[in-house]
């Protein structure tokens, strides 16, 4: 009996650290894979592109005639100065934000006027947003062509600030992420980058045109 207890004790002595290691490997593998999918493998992820074809939806004139479905890819956001390039998808729920930068569905889409809001995780797609400076260029490559913005302000606000995701009369782009960028738990603040439009494509259906940023009447074909 004593021998049997001793054997059990020995198995426990070796088994407990082995179990801890196995648990650690499992946790690291599951969340590491999820992290890889949201960062390095993001460009390879297969997303359903926007198609304005739903029956029963209101049709608006201009860009994005019908509402994109949640999770559909609207385009790609590129901020060359800080090496950000990520897909933009419709919606900002927990699951959708794993697919890339989310467009807040309650805000207009680029080209519709008003305050366009894009949000991304501080530890995946928007990690480098902390390095953005006033004057940097933000490009949103859409199915209609590139919408180009220039950063005009950067600020940090509490997460409950009611003055960020609000309608505006003039067109602008608001990028949001959590702040501090390195924080254990749910970050209490938000990092806000505001940008104003520099140029946008022409609404001409089926072709990709870009209007001159200086407001000239002529339109140029996108390169």
């Amino acid at each position: 009996m004593r021998r049997w207890i001793r054997k059990l004790f020995i198995i426990g002595l070796i088994g407990i650290p082995s179990l801890i290691i196995a648990l650690g490997v499992g946790v690291t593998a599951v969340f590491g894979w999820s992290f890889l999918q949201q960062t390095l493998l993001l460009a390879d992820s297969v997303l359903v592109p926007y198609k304005p074809a739903h029956i029963g939806y209101r049709k608006l004139p201009g860009f994005w005639p019908t509402l994109p479905e949640p999770g559909t890819k609207l385009g790609t956001i590129v901020i060359p100065a800080v090496n950000i390039k990520a897909p933009v998808v419709q919606g900002t729920t927990w699951d959708i934000l794993k697919l890339g930068v989310g467009h807040y569905a309650g805000s207009p889409l680029p080209g519709q006027g008003g305050n366009v809001v894009f949000s991304g995780h501080r530890d995946t797609v928007f990690t480098n947003l902390k390095h953005v400076k006033v004057g940097d260029t933000v490009t949103f490559d859409s199915p209609y062509g590139p919408f180009v913005y220039r950063v005009t302000s950067i600020k940090i606000v509490p997460k409950t600030d009611p003055n960020i995701v609000v309608p505006s009369k003039s067109p602008e782009l608001t990028l949001t992420s959590c702040y501090p960028f390195v924080y254990i738990g749910f970050a209490p603040d938000r990092f806000i980058v505001r940008a104003t439009p520099v140029s946008e494509p022409s609404v001409t259906a089926g072709t990709r045109y870009r209007a001159s940023e200086r407001g000239r009447d002529n339109v140029k074909k996108s390169p």
Binding site: G106, L109, Q112, R122, D123, V157, I164, F186
Partner: peptide, 19 residues
């Protein structure tokens, strides 16, 4: 005839604890 935005939108939750 235009998209009417949410009047008082809340900032999306962009924190993930994956790292």
């Amino acid at each position: 005839k235009t998209f009417v935005p949410v009047p008082h939108g809340q900032l999306p939750v962009t924190a993930s604890n994956t790292p």
